[in-house]
Design a binder for these strands. Structure first.
Lengths: 341, 341
DNA sequence: ACGATGAATGAAAGCGCTTGCATTAGGGAA
DNA sequence: TTCCCTAATGCAAGCGCTTTCATTCATCGT
């Protein structure tokens, strides 16, 4: 491994006949430099192909221009999309993205936060609210700017760029109920450590209560994320004595699995049973019948989260925090209950 | 922003009554420390909640335990999956992942590489072979370990953990041809700067030549990645006078778009026209009919790439480089050409 | 019992950059 | 012309860690 050393600030300073302080000032646009010297220095910089060493810069300036994101997993379209947008904005502003994932394991998050702090991240992106309080302590003790995303609760103290999962799912449940469905079942995600999943179920319950139904009558089955698990739970649900006429799924992937299983079982959707999802990933428009779901602006969310976080880092102030809108996409997988069922 | 300073090596050293050198040695398991002092130091470390400052460590040791990945975009399932696996292995080995994306714009890659080098990445993950030679120069001048992925060419000098796109697509094209199809059309990705896309088309051409067909007779339409573009190209293709009996798509997303469009046009798949994809993302088993495609082990690939890269960084040596296997998944969207067409 | 031997530890020199403070030079006011 | 003020620049002290080299000390051979 030949280590052909990159030129350093000293090299540039010497070649330009100025001090390292001046070169540094040129590079950091901190004013206080004649246009003439700046030009001379910049020429040397490009001639030498100089690139500042970030580690050194970070050590001296206590700024890394690095932002950490901790997501459950990138292999989930909704996070991948949001993260991509997040990264684009970061890059456009001179920041670099450090990614870790928890595989939905809350315990790993604290560890990841520690690592990112040690690495000197200038800011943090976290998903949702629910986490060990010690994690928040860690971040706040350090005065580290952060923003939550993929969720939004009006009452929560933490800054969040996201949507209200309760309300969003309430709307969908309401739509289902308004069509006349009374026998509802829910395929839920694992709610432990996942407030988004929990909130969505809460939204369904609220809609039922508002419609005069007893929320406890609807079976709610939690299952890990995935098609196959969605399919399995659906099969179980439909094998039970008192079949639901509508199955509300906590996300599109689970719903797609359910849809696939329905087909396999020879059930017509929505005639025999309605199925709804959440997220409106592209898949929703590809399955047959098209999936009724809740549209969430993931890219937009990632973009806004990045902008908010950068603002927070650079100016200390923060933007508005009103929740992002989610909108119903009522597609063919949702219909009125059949009169015979 | 209250900056509650994290404890430093000095703090630990003082509290443990040893020198910073000793603490450093304990932390880096470099032997040369009595079990007794190590225990004492470690206790102080946990008591104080000490975490080393990576910037300082990087500056002093010229190691960052950071690995950079430059992908076209994370918002593409195949990269997201691979990257997730890549990141998991990295994390398990004490490395952190720095992500940038190029949005399939080759020009941006050189810039990203520079940034990652300046940030002191210990290694790099790049997608495919095709890039400006200056990028390779940059990396090699620095002696920076790297590995390519998502592609594999036996003749290429660069280390790669991937599969052979030509062969993989050859197999699929062969399967299509062997069913009797003679009028074939290709929905391709943009091949400029994307050797995976180009190689796949090459595979199709080779299969045609091997079957005694003139490769130039098959229309190849390039289009950016996406459903809607896939649908649009498909519509165009089927509107032409001499309709193909089989449309081979360069990836599953394009194929899914084509499938959707076929449905919209009232065409039966595969009776009226066969459609095939590539990648075998989950969507392939969700659309109706299920998509015939080429299965590629993306997660496995990400995992292996990470392991190879780490080995390369830590020991200088490299593992084997035989291509990963891809396998045909011949599903319902592919059938023999109808006799009437 | 004494010097030789080697293992554990400490002292200190950076790594490449930023930044507070000192210094210099140039320009305007008196 | 002299003096003061300001803007540009340089000096040098770190930032927190690793690592080389020197030092210390206990152990062993003779």
């Amino acid at each position: 491994m030949p280590h052909n050393p990159l030129p350093t600030l000293d090299d540039v300073a010497r070649a330009a006949g100025v001090s390292t302080a001046t070169v540094s000032r040129c590079l950091n646009k901190s004013g206080k430099v004649t246009e003439e010297t700046r030009a001379r220095v910049m020429k040397v910089v490009t001639d030498l192909g100089y690139t500042p060493n970030f580690s050194a810069r970070a050590l001296a300036a206590k700024r890394t221009f690095t932002i950490g994101a901790i997501v459950p997993t990138m292999a989930n379209d909704i996070f991948a999309r949001g993260l991509q947008a997040f990264q684009e904005v970061l890059n456009a502003n001179g920041y670099t993205l450090l990614v870790s994932s928890t595989a939905y394991n809350p315990d790993r998050e604290a560890e990841q936060v520690r690592t990112l702090i040690a690495r000197g991240a200038d800011g943090l992106l976290l998903i949702g609210y629910e986490r060990d309080p010690s994690v928040y302590d860690l971040i706040e003790a350090r005065g580290l700017p952060f923003v939550l995303s993929w969720a939004h609760r009006d009452t929560a103290p933490q800054p969040a760029i996201g949507f209200n999962n309760v309300d969003a799912m309430y709307d969908m449940a309401r739509a289902v109920l308004d069509l006349g469905h009374r026998k509802i079942a829910v395929i839920a995600g694992v709610s432990k450590g996942n407030d988004r999943a929990a909130d969505r179920v809460a939204g369904i319950h609220r809609a039922m209560a508002d419609t005069g139904l007893d929320p406890t009558t609807a079976p709610v089955i939690e299952t890990p994320y995935g098609f196959d698990t969605g399919a399995a739970v659906f099969a179980e649900l439909m094998a039970a004595p008192n079949r639901p006429t509508a199955v509300i799924c906590i996300n599109d992937v689970l719903a797609a699995g359910a849809l696939m299983q329905a087909q396999k079982m020879g059930l017509k959707v929505p005639d025999d049973v309605s199925i709804t999802g959440f997220d409106d990933i592209e898949l929703a428009r590809l399955v047959t019948p098209n999936l009724a779901t809740v549209h969430v602006p993931h890219r937009e969310m990632g973009r806004l989260a990045a902008e908010d976080l950068i603002r927070r880092i650079e100016t200390g102030e923060h933007g508005e925090r009103s929740p992002l809108p989610s909108t119903l996409r009522l597609r063919a997988s949702l219909g009125p209950p059949s009169s015979t069922s």
